[in-house]
Design a protein around this nucleic acid. Sequence first.
DNA 1: CAGTATCCATAAAGATACTG
DNA 2: CAGTATCTTTATGGATACTG
Lengths: 162, 162
Amino acid sequence: MAVLLGPLADRDAWSAIGECPIEKTMAVAGTKSAMLIMREAYYGTTRFDDFARRVGITKAATSARLSELVSAGMLQKRPYQEPGQRVRDEYVLTDAGRDFMPVVWAMFEWGRNHLPNNTRLRLTHLDCGADASVEIRCEKGHSVPPDELGVRVVRRSRPEGQ
Amino acid sequence: MAVLLGPLADRDAWSAIGECPIEKTMAVAGTKSAMLIMREAYYGTTRFDDFARRVGITKAATSARLSELVSAGMLQKRPYQEPGQRVRDEYVLTDAGRDFMPVVWAMFEWGRNHLPNNTRLRLTHLDCGADASVEIRCEKGHSVPPDELGVRVVRRSRPEGQ
DNA sequence: CAGTATCCATAAAGATACTG
DNA sequence: CAGTATCTTTATGGATACTG
C-alpha cells in the first residue's frame, strides 16, 4: 500500500499526531470478550446474564467488560423494571457502539472467508435480501483496493463552521 | 438490529454452525500487537526489526506474533539476501492478509471519530484524492444501516451436514 | 539484522462461592 | 436476575542478555 503518511520510523513518531487510533481502539475494546459482547449487542442482547451466557464468559468477566464498554461510550446503562422486581440496568447500544459495527462484522467476514467451517453464514441486507460485506470506499463512490489506500495528515483539525 | 440468525440462546448453539467467526478471528489475530503488526504490513514494513521498532514491542513479542500471523495465513515468509549477508526472511502480506484490511482500518476510523486527539488523520483513496471509510454494503450497492443488517444461515449443500 | 532464551509483571478470564 | 469477591491459570508482553 502506498501511503502519504508512510511507515513511521518508530513508535515515538505517532505521538506527534496524537497516537495511533488503531492502538487506542484496541486498548478500549480489543479483548475477545469485548468483541463478543458487542456482537451480542448487535444481535439485540441487553441483559447482564444473557451477555454472560451467550458469550460464554464468567459473570466477573462480563461485569468488567460491560463497565469498560460503558466507559468507552459504546454501551449505555438504561434502567428498567420487571413487574414485582427491583429496578435494574440493561445495556443498550449508543451511536458510537453502532459505529463500531464495521469492526466486528469485518472480523466476521474475514473469519468466514479464511477460516474453516464457516461457509454457512452470510451477512444480509434485510431490506433487499442481497448478501452484504464490509468494504473500503471513498466519498466519490469508488471501491478502494489495497494498493490505492493511503493515510494522510490534515493540516489543522477543526470542526466545520468554526 | 433485526437478525435472521437471532440472538443465540447460549454459546453451545454456535457449535451447530461451526463456531462464531468473530471469536475465531480474535483468537488468531486479536491482540494489540498483532493488529499493529498488520498496520505496519499495510504501511509496507517487511523486516523483523522494523516491525519491532515501529510497533514498539520487544523482539520476543515480535517473534511470537509474526509466527502466529504466518500460521494464520496473513503473512508469508519470503527469503531475501542483502549483499555480503546471509539469507534471511522477510514477512510479506498474503491475499488473506490484505483481506484483513477492513478490520484494521475500521478500528482506525472508529478511533479517530470517537476517541480524542485523532482528528488530523484521514483515510484516503490515493487514485482520486477523496477521503475513504469502511462501510457495510450489499451486493446491490446499498449502504446498509445498522438496523437493516442481518446474519443468515445458508442450507448445507453437503447431505452429511445435519 | 534477525532472531532465541530467561525471567518477571500485568491483563484476561475461568472456577467457585456469596449477596440482594 | 444482576451482580461482587476470591483464587488460580493462561496470555500477553516488557527487560535483558546472548547468538550467528
